[in-house]
Design a protein around this nucleic acid. Sequence first.
RNA 1: GCGGGUGUAGUGUAGGGGUUAACACGUCUGGUUGUGGCCCAGAAGAUCGUGGGUUCAAAUCCCACCACUCGCCCCA
Length: 425
Amino acid sequence: MSAIQRLKGFQDILPEDQPYWEYFMSTAADLARRYGFSRVDVPIIEKNSLFERGVGTASDFFVKKEMYSIEESDGDLITLRPEFTAGLVRAYVQNGMQNWTQPVKLFTFGPIFRRERPQAGRFRQHNQFDCEILGETDPVADLEVMLVAINLYREMGYRDLTFQLNSVGCPVCKPVFVEALTAFMQEHLDKLSEIDRERLQRNPQRILDSKDPGIDDLLARAPRTIDYLCEDCGSHFADLRLLLERVGESYTINHRLVRGIDYYTKTAFEVWDQRIGAQSALMGGGRYDGLAEAIGGPSTPGVGFGMGIERAVLGLKAEEIVPPALEEPHIFVAHFGGETKIAAVEIASRLRQEGLGVRMAFARDRRSLKSQMRESNKYPIQFVLIVGEDEYADNLVTVKDFQSGGEQLQVPLDQLSHWLADRLS
RNA sequence: GCGGGUGUAGUGUAGGGGUUAACACGUCUGGUUGUGGCCCAGAAGAUCGUGGGUUCAAAUCCCACCACUCGCCCCA
């Protein structure tokens, strides 16, 4: 009988990777707060209908059955969130945030679930950092969200990032574009692959991000969303471009960057890093002015992004960025069993209460000092406190200082914590 | 859902139809009675992914399955 294995596409994040995660999370939270965002946390499970309406049944989550859903005993269908935005907008509506000072700027972290085929930088459970600005139509909101995204990578040490930018219009202008695109594609049906023909039926815009190299030329000549923008969308896009230029951010207009669903409006953007294999999109975001209404709330504009943390960590490694080390104890307490063990436990406990990190030697019985010293050497220990019978009798400990090459001296118990604290910068 | 790759101790590898499956790192113990890093000695740890087939003989060849992995689709 073999031991039970973890599920496909899921992963364990081991201690050796934690510095990267800690680095990401603390940098992200700090940056988001600097831009005026507040943290919220929402459930990882919601009613399936939230995603049905908030993600759209035309999306692959539904079409390809990529969501993890559970039918409850009363027949309700509940679903592990495949993305953050729908849940955050639900929280906005449900908690009456439309009555807070607008706009409301939120960020969150947590796991996302999609039942896709795993590969490098893509998992069935992955974690995201997510930022949203709700209740604001000003393109400055779009700009801020983009700046949080790209500056987060920069603060962590990434280089050579590019913005991909597009505007997908709104319910006023998008249909005109889709009609033009469809007409164009109908004339070139012979050049389309089977999946692209199917897309043309189901969700014509998606043809634009087809990876079929055979239609690159065709797509280059196809109608472009930005040529069909209505006045409102056009000026929003122009304003955003001006803002980006004024703050010195370069971007590439990517006419093939689209969102297939109507409540995604205007701005669509991604940040790319070419160094992490096929999954070059580090994050994706955009505006969704129709979403709140789609889930039954008051009409509320919104713009935001989701950022994959696993992918960011992959990128950190690819860029050879070394995160700060996590704090570990620098004090090790060794003993000789019996009363000395109990004394050692007391000493360790007192030092920890004083705020010092202490690693305790475990030993069911008496254990050789050699093996305890060897153990301490596996860790970044500076001081080994030796609690022996003699020391115990005299109310002191022998302190061995590895940093000075192993020098030893005796320190009275009542001075120990000060003595150590003074020497551990 | 579709393609490609890989499966040998905890990890990384070597080997390869014939019976003690190798090496490195890691782990543990010891190198005298209370002292680390180096060194030395030793130990534990693998039914060579699973099942079937070929063969006197399979971890080595064949098939299937499974797992992992990379890529497509899509996305973070």
